[in-house]
Design a protein around this nucleic acid. Sequence first.
DNA 1: CACCAACGTTGGTGAAGCCAACGTTTCGAA
DNA 2: TTCGAAACGTTGGCTTCACCAACGTTGGTG
Lengths: 150, 150
Amino acid sequence: MDATAPQSPAGLRTTPSWLLNQVATHAGRLISAGFATHDLRGYHYRLLAALTESGPASQADLGRRCGIDRSDVVAAVNDLAGRGLVVRAPDPDDRRRNVISLTEAGADEAHRMADTVVRVQDDLLAPLTSAERDQLTRLLTRLLEHHGGH
Amino acid sequence: MDATAPQSPAGLRTTPSWLLNQVATHAGRLISAGFATHDLRGYHYRLLAALTESGPASQADLGRRCGIDRSDVVAAVNDLAGRGLVVRAPDPDDRRRNVISLTEAGADEAHRMADTVVRVQDDLLAPLTSAERDQLTRLLTRLLEHHGGH
DNA sequence: CACCAACGTTGGTGAAGCCAACGTTTCGAA
DNA sequence: TTCGAAACGTTGGCTTCACCAACGTTGGTG
């Protein structure tokens, strides 16, 4: 009946995977809110970012680079193509493939979304010093790399 | 700028919220796999943990403590009650409420799941020293607390 | 040539997180 | 004391993200 916000059970609150999940969930909310102003979602941004960095690619390649399933790439590319942010063209050298390329509008949108992402990072990491942010990034990177070659 | 990116785009790979998401996703897979051996999922564990720590509570209370929506608590409690891990009884003092209590079997299962969670943490944090694990926990805790009072 | 691998596509599954609405019950204020 | 607001449990639905199986088409190799 007291109930003045004793949040999660203590056993969870000190569990790294729980902390990870909570912080990632919060980050996801911030990111989602940011992307919503572009009327796009996470999958779309990942694809745009990959295209911006590495240029045109097949859908399967994009999926591998972004960690998105082939079937999910289809839907996301449909969305992006429907908005004219991306062009889907058959690959003349391999007729199994579609080559996905950024349009000018797509490149612009990618830039704007990248700006949004930067803003969100600052929001998310506000309580940490620059050194602490680096430390967090390094620790997470090491974890990711260790489990990366699964 | 270019950077030959075999894996994820470099712009993402250095973005904290992306790293957070990736590591949390991996942690989630490990946790899910662990819970699968108990034939239960995350929501169930959270509820059992809360009940273990703080004793019987109403569904709404449990939801608030675990960060689970009221409607989702209903389904999870249904599952737990169906397995005899938990008992749902009307609160005589407030007929709007159900009081949820752990059964003996439920307390046992909670312990076993907690053991599973500990094992998963070790797996997840394998590449980090004890000091680094503490550091990670501290950084994540600070982020969570900073964003906690939303 | 036959076979297998890769590709794009369709359709479906599941966990997790949310929100809206309803009937019941309780509580506080007019 | 009556009336309205609030809390509760419940149903049903929605969205994002992550997977998986299957199919027909196309490419490369034995």
